[in-house]
Amino acid sequence: MNRRKVIFNRTVPSSRSIKEREDFDQLLEQYAQSKHPYFSRIAFWGTVGGAVVANFSFCVSIAKLT
């Protein structure tokens, strides 16, 4: 099935009209939103989880000794 459309003599947008659509602030905002806060990253929960497990094991081993 041919899904291509041939457009003949379409008006080319001017540089000015393209410039008007430039929005770097919006791009920065989009970029900032895409950055996950540290507490929502796997690395954070991995570290926290590991510390909790290590702490629990330490406490259990101390309890066994005493």
Binding site: R4, V6, R10
Partner: peptide
Amino acid sequence: FRNRKAKRAINIDE
């Protein structure tokens, strides 16, 4: 083209 089903166009002039 895959997601939004936009049509691939070929713009040609005189």
